[in-house]
Amino acid sequence: MNKDIHVVVLMGGWSAEREVSLSSGKGVVKALEERGYTNVTGLDMDRDVAAKLAELKPDVVFNALHGTPGEDGSVQGMLDLMGISYTHSGCTTSAVAIDKQLTKAVLEPHGIPMPPGKLVESASLYEGDPLPRPYVLKPANEGSSVGVAIVTEDSNYGQPISPQAKGPWQEFDRLMAEEFIAGRELTVAVLGDEALCVTELVIDNGWYDYDHKYTDGQTTHICPAEVSDDIAQRMMDLALEAHRVLGCKGCSRSDFRWDETRGMDGLFLLETNTQPGMTPLSLVPEQAAAKGISYGELVERLIEEALG
């Protein structure tokens, strides 16, 4: 690998996940410099990003953005038009994977089990529940558990949900309503064409929302997860199949819920993330380490695939 190439690490931006993206990006910059790359530029994305990239003339962009527009195909489309190579998934894959309805439409015909659900107008929630409680409401086009609510019989959202109750219905016009799957929270990272392993996420209080993902001490990672070999293999097979069907590149991370009282039938894929975090608390670097792949090697492999 030529370590004199110019790598621009694109981070920050203006999504709800800005701070996490900055943490990911700074980690990538540090790792590349430690591995001997001589021309690494960290770029906090603003509205003039195209002009700045044209001036910088990178050989490759490491996409460390999370959320929109760095994860939804917008930035990928811009880079395609500019003829700049970049890490992670392309424009179409990114646009599909961040859209929960499109993801279901693509994955379910391939036999990938996902929780039953439907798209609802947020205003309709004030008239009545779209599904029997408990159910989950989440934005149709966001990642990393941003704006997710679990509506239970005893939740303080109201019966029906009150317009004054704090929740995603106040921020988003349309939401995906899904059946709540009881059980264990698990995740699988895919790197290239290999599913790495299974991690179980044990939450100290509540569930694996955005704060639990990125706040130290709120979630315990059990890697590898203490599940039977057949369940672990099934999850890794499903994560790899989702990665392939969606057309992901570089790395992805698929999140699962498993109701172990139902055995194999209780396993559901919740979503596939095309821009997994690269922070010190992130799951992909952790799973890579469990397979003997250092953080720096992980970063370098993603760049190699982008340039390949």
Rank of each mutant, 00 (worst) to 15 (best):
K138Y: 01
L102S: 13
D99H: 14
M114Q: 15
T92F: 12
E71R: 09
E127S: 14
M78C: 04
V148H: 02
G143N: 04
I112V: 15
A165V: 02
V148W: 00
M114P: 10
G111W: 08
A165W: 03
M78E: 03
K104Y: 07
V61L: 13
I98M: 15
L107P: 03
K138C: 07
P69W: 13
L81G: 13
I84K: 03
L107Y: 00
G73Y: 05
P116H: 11
Y135G: 03
P69I: 11
A140I: 10
P130T: 02
A165R: 04
H88A: 07
I98K: 05
K138T: 05
T152Y: 01
E121K: 14
P130A: 03
N141H: 09
E153W: 00
L56E: 13
K138R: 04
G128I: 05
K138I: 08
Q101T: 13
Q76P: 00
L79P: 01
P160T: 02
L131K: 03
I84N: 04
A149R: 11
P139Q: 06
G77V: 05
G143Q: 08
K100C: 08
A149K: 10
V106N: 05
Y157R: 03
E127G: 13
Q101R: 14
G117F: 07
G167T: 10
L56R: 12
H88C: 01
P58E: 14
S162Y: 06
A105H: 13
Q159E: 13
T68K: 15
K100R: 13
A105V: 09
I98Q: 08
P163G: 05
D99F: 08
G77C: 05
V136G: 03
H66S: 14
E121Q: 12
K138M: 05
L79D: 07
A123S: 15
A123R: 14
V96R: 11
D154E: 14
D72H: 01
N63R: 09
L125S: 08
I161K: 10
I84H: 08
L131D: 04
E71H: 06
S145F: 00
E142V: 01
D59Q: 12
V120D: 09
Q164V: 08
P109T: 12
S85P: 00
H66L: 15
G158H: 04
A149G: 00
A165T: 06
P163Q: 03
S89F: 04
E71F: 03
G67I: 12
V151R: 07
V106T: 11
L137A: 02
V61T: 14
Y126S: 07
K100P: 12
P58T: 14
M114T: 14
S155M: 00
V148E: 05
G90C: 08
L119M: 13
Y157D: 10
P116Q: 11
S74P: 00
E142K: 05
